[in-house]
Each structure stands twice: as structure tokens, then as C-alpha cells.
């Protein structure tokens, strides 16, 4: 099997180790990986702000790149939902309708791909730490992706998962919302951090680097005693 990997813009720039970890995991599993050079972004920021025409250029480019892909993996519930759920809506009734549905059907969030498509649950990883897990809302509710990350984490040696209170509550990132309404966004983030800190965990783990960027931003600024890490980085640890 050959996997086409789409690395979203903020992972490319800020969290390359997430993409690198995923490539390593796939290589270890004997799966051929091809990472897309372009586009760099799925178009979600424009889409979520209501600018559909401005979304389409990137979306069409991405879909064309993925036309012949066997399976597409995106290490983000949010960008994954954009391609899987919102592309078909965006292109409904246009010449790209069929293509958008085809791409949607072979697109997977990273952990969902491992568990649901490959049937892999144990990556023989070791991570001797207490962690708590934050569900990104798009992964949780648009992609119904509650279980795969938990199944994978349960097999990691030394790892102890302590669920936080209101684990399913949004962290407040919300894409352009975080910049349009920063005060609301950070207040929600603080609530989330407080729930995470209550567990006594050392790390907040998530499938979404965007939530992590927001939470880590608050943690660093406020010197909170917890760290963040993307699930792929844990699964790559041997």
C-alpha cells in the first residue's frame, strides 16, 4: 500500500516533528509514503470565514494532487474534516462534485487510518508518562474519531491515560475564531488547561496540532506545569 501524506501548513512550519514521526511510523510498518509538496493548506481558514471562492483554489489543487492516491492521510482532525466533510459540501453541484466525493472517501485522519483502515493498534511504542487526551472537536464530532487515538494510546508501554473532566469540551482554538475573538478563545483555553492540570498529567496529547498550538501558547505564557505533544510523536517513540 502507498499512502499520500498531506501535512497541513501549521504542522509544516511549527511542528515538523509530527510529520517526521508519521513518516517513520509508516516506514516501520513497511508502508510506502509520499508527502505532498503543494498545496500547503487545505483552505479551511477561508472556508470557515465564509470566503468560499478563495477556498476553492487551494481545495481544487489539493483534490487534483490526490486524484490518483490510494489512501490519503492527514494528521489533523480539523483539516481531515475539511477534506472529508466540507469539500463535498463546497463543491456540491459543481464540476468537482464527483472528485470531491472520491477524495473524501479515501481520506483519513492519521489515527483513524491506523486503527480503522490498517487494523494496527500496537505500534510497540514506549512513553513512560502520565498523559491526558484532548479531543479536537472536528475529529470528535465531524469524523466520529473518539476511539482510535485511545486504542492506540492504550497499547503504549508505560503510558497512563487520565481522562480530564469535560474531555469533549472545545479548547477554544476554532481557527480564525482564535484571532477574531481572542479573549473568548483564551478564556476557553484556560478552562481546558485547568481541567487538564487537575488530572496531574505531564502531557496534554491530541491528534490536532492546532489545538496544541493554542494550548501550548497559553501554557508557555502563563508558565503552567504541563506540556503538549501530538499523538504521532508518542507513537513514534521506541
Amino acid at each position: 500500500m502507498k499512502v499520500t501524506l498531506f501535512i497541513p501548513c501549521y504542522i509544516d512550519l511549527f511542528y515538523p516533528q509530527v510529520g517526521i514521526s508519521i513518516v517513520k511510523i509508516f516506514e516501520r510498518l513497511g508502508i510506502e509514503v509520499e508527502a505532498l509538496e503543494s498545496p500547503a493548506c487545505c483552505g479551511q481558514p477561508a472556508y470557515n470565514t465564509g470566503y468560499h471562492d478563495e477556498t476553492k483554489e487551494a481545495a481544487i489543487k489539493l483534490m487534483e494532487q490526490l486524484k490518483d492516491a490510494e489512501a490519503v492521510v492527514i494528521p489533523s482532525g480539523s483539516c481531515g474534516a475539511m477534506v472529508k466533510v466540507f469539500y463535498p459540501e463546497l463543491f456540491e453541484g459543481t464540476e468537482y462534485e464527483i472528485l470531491s466525493k472520491e477524495v473524501s472517501s479515501k481520506c483519513y485522519e492519521f489515527t483513524a487510518f491506523l486503527v480503522n483502515r490498517l487494523g494496527v493498534t500496537d505500534l510497540k511504542a514506549t512513553f513512560p508518562h502520565k498523559i491526558t487526551f484532548h479531543d479536537g472537536c472536528h475529529g470528535l464530532r465531524e469524523l466520529n474519531n473518539k476511539l482510535p487515538p485511545r486504542v492506540l494510546l492504550s497499547k503504549v508501554k508505560g503510558l497512563e491515560l487520565i481522562e480530564m473532566k469535560e474531555a469533549e469540551t472545545c479548547c477554544g482554538f476554532g481557527g480564525t475564531f482564535s484571532a477574531k475573538f481572542p479573549i473568548i478563545s483564551t478564556a476557553m483555553g484556560e478552562t481546558k488547561c485547568a481541567s487538564a492540570l487537575e488530572t496531574g498529567a505531564e502531557f496534554i496529547v491530541s491528534c490536532d496540532s492546532s489545538c496544541i498550538m493554542h494550548l501550548q501558547g497559553l501554557i508557555t505564557r502563563q508558565n503552567k506545569n504541563i506540556k503538549t505533544i501530538h499523538i504521532a510523536e508518542i507513537l513514534a517513540q521506541q
Binding site: 472537536c137 472536528h138 476554532g174 481557527g175 477574531k180
Partner: peptide, 10 residues
Amino acid sequence: YASSLCGACA
């Protein structure tokens, strides 16, 4: 616009 689109409502 004042929503993170988390979908808890839906």
C-alpha cells in the same frame, strides 16, 4: 463568527 464551531450544540 463568535463560535469555535465545536459542534457540541448539534
